[in-house]
Nucleic acid binder design. Structure first.
Length: 280
DNA sequence: CGCATTTCCTGGTAGC
DNA sequence: TGCTACCAGGAAATGC
């Protein structure tokens, strides 16, 4: 009935959890405990329109409406879309036409990092990340050649660039660290200096990690209210994230934690070395 | 324009 | 035990 990220680390929200919205007409929209803000732009406009599909792009949920608009939902790190009224932190309430599941949509967002807004269909200029988003990670579009070309476009640290969603959609902070550890790439390596031979490995690592995490999360999604491990079942699979101060599983050297692009970044200083030209 | 840094926000918790 | 201070992070905004 609901869909959420778990502490923002389920990189991709799962569509089956919100499929019930398809075909619903929006009868009313109410902004609760949130000022009209860009995060909730044009909300009243969705009233009177019908949800014609439930799509996803990266971490964004995209709900095209039959009146020519599109409802865009981003869960941030603490967002939940549910038909059951949450006790606290409701930001948006939509009154919906009836079906067997629910007559209401509640958007709960404790930390207010999420977004719930209306744009003209397909017009994403006000959402730069969505507008410039790379290919879907779990699709035939995500090829070695595409990924290689994308990584060449920036000299930013590869960790930061992955988080920008530009080379590929859907990679969050934990999974960036994990994919770079798997493929022995230093997070500060300039994106365009990642060795060509490692790019297919990195591409595959991203796909594998996202698939596994979605599987693992799926098993905890139903009872998330009682789960205290905030990253869900996938937490047991992590090799780098959260393991700073511990021995690297591969070589025994202590995992370090640094800040890259303002984000906690975990890596093995022995396994993950900068390319020679980048030293000093 | 490209890249780096700061901001938003609240609950959990480390440290006293 | 209770209080304060700080940390976490996706995307946008701001700074250079």
């Amino acid at each position: 009935l609901g869909v959420r990220f778990t502490k923002g680390q389920l990189a991709i929200p799962e569509l089956p959890e919100v499929e019930w919205l398809k075909g619903k007409s929006i009868l009313g929209a109410e902004l609760i405990d949130a000022v009209p803000h860009v995060k909730y732009a044009n909300l009243p406009r969705c009233v009177g329109q019908q949800i014609s599909a439930v799509n996803r792009r990266g971490k964004f949920l995209l709900l095209p409406l039959d009146g020519g608009d599109e409802l865009i939902i981003h869960l941030g790190m603490t967002g939940i879309v549910t038909g059951e009224k949450p006790e606290k932190h409701i930001r948006v309430h939509l009154e919906l036409s009836k079906n067997s599941v629910s007559n209401d949509l509640y958007f709960q967002d404790t930390r207010r990092f999420g977004r719930f807004l209306v744009v003209k269909q397909g017009e994403y200029e006000t959402l730069p990340t969505l507008h410039n988003m790379g290919v879907e990670p779990i699709s035939d579009d995500f090829t070695d050649d595409i990924f290689k070309a994308a990584l060449k476009k920036s000299s930013t640290a590869v960790k930061t660039y992955l988080l920008s969603q530009k080379p590929v959609a859907g990679v969050g902070n934990i999974y960036a660290d994990e994919a770079l550890w798997q493929t022995k790439i230093h997070p500060l390596t300039p994106s365009n200096k990642v060795p060509s031979k490692k790019i297919p490995l990195l591409r595959q690592a991203i796909v594998d990690i996202l698939k596994k995490s979605i599987e693992a999360q799926g098993t905890t999604l139903n009872d998330y209210r009682t789960v205290n491990g905030e990253v869900g079942a996938y937490i047991s699979e992590l090799k780098a994230y959260g393991h700073d101060g511990e021995a690297c599983e591969r070589c025994g050297v202590i995992i370090e934690k640094i800040v890259v692009g303002g984000r906690g970044t975990h890596f093995c200083p022995n396994c993950q070395k900068l390319p020679k030209a980048q030293k000093s």
